[in-house]
Amino acid sequence: MTQTLRQDDPLVHLLLTYRTMSDRHKAALAPYLDVEGYVEGDHRRAYTRRKRTYALEAKQLLEQAMGLLTERYALPGGLAVTLPGTDGDSHTLVTGQLDDAAREVFLHGQCHAFARALSDDTGWPMAVIIATECAQDSDFCAFEPWAEDVCACQLEHVVAVRPDGAHIDITGAHLPGTLPGYEDQEAIAMTEAIWAHICRSPLWRRPAVAEARTIVAPLLAMLDEGRTAA
């Protein structure tokens, strides 16, 4: 059954914006088309340029819509989903299940997604584990105002920070400097600038936050029981 949205629902604005945009695009492209809707040869180049511009605008609106839907609706458990990992790899997990498959995903390529999901759910801040030196070519090294002498390519692993100071990732709770694989490495606080960099950098994967959110409750339950990852 179709449901009626409230006037103040953000989805209403998105729907109206999309329809207005679509009508505007169609009207602007109409002069390049013949009566059957095909591009006339003399206008193909101009049509392609304008079509590309409109495609970028539509992509931005789609990203806004998907962001809103992700915030509004949680994924159900039991879905098999494949997510991008490191070095072009992909990993498959089942939503809602904290198992080896989930640990593989959220350790190798999606640690930032899990930290974001955990932070959003608990209000705990995030932190970034810093490598002692760049793991990438120096051409990837760019200094940003988030920490003194910390290069962008030194951002290595993202965790949530529990009120007691423990660093939390998909493997459980760890004292600072004891996270397996990152022993004795320093951490800096996550900022909006760092998060924006991570989301746009080719060295990081698209953060699969919606999928990560389905694993937060099992991880918190594990912490409450005092268990660690198997």
Rank of each mutant, 00 (worst) to 15 (best):
S138V: 10
C199I: 06
W204K: 08
G67Q: 02
Q60F: 02
G37M: 09
A65D: 00
G181Q: 06
T48P: 02
L98T: 04
L219P: 11
T17P: 00
A193G: 10
T228N: 14
D137T: 08
C199S: 05
H91L: 13
V81W: 10
A229R: 13
L203E: 12
G85H: 04
R162D: 11
D164L: 06
A193L: 14
E104H: 13
L219R: 04
Q97N: 04
E104Q: 12
V39L: 05
E104W: 09
G77I: 00
A208E: 15
A74K: 03
H174T: 05
L14R: 01
V158Q: 11
L56I: 03
R206K: 01
Q64A: 04
Q136E: 13
R45P: 01
T95A: 05
A230Y: 10
G177T: 07
Q60E: 15
R116M: 08
A229Q: 10
A189D: 15
A173N: 05
A28Q: 11
I198W: 11
G226T: 08
A131I: 00
L179T: 15
A131M: 02
P84C: 01
S201D: 13
L69G: 00
Q97F: 04
S119F: 09
T132G: 14
E183H: 04
D9S: 09
C111Q: 08
L14Y: 00
E225F: 03
V39A: 11
A131D: 15
E156C: 05
Q60S: 11
A196W: 01
A65I: 01
D137N: 11
I168E: 09
E71C: 05
L14N: 01
A217K: 02
L93H: 07
E148T: 07
G41M: 11
S138M: 04
D164H: 05
L155G: 07
S22M: 06
T70S: 13
F106H: 09
A55N: 13
I188E: 08
K59F: 05
T122V: 07
V81H: 06
V150N: 03
T132D: 15
E40S: 13
M21H: 13
T191F: 10
Y182R: 14
A152L: 14
E36Y: 08
T86F: 07
M190E: 08
W195C: 02
E144Y: 08
T70F: 00
L15C: 00
A102I: 12
A210E: 10
L155N: 09
G67W: 00
L203P: 09
C134W: 12
E211R: 03
L14V: 00
L98D: 09
E144Q: 15
E211Y: 05
I130D: 12
I130H: 10
D120Y: 01
S138G: 01
L93R: 09
R213P: 11
T17D: 13
Y47R: 11
A173H: 06
A187G: 01
L56Q: 15
I188M: 10
G41N: 11
A65E: 02
A55R: 14
E63T: 01
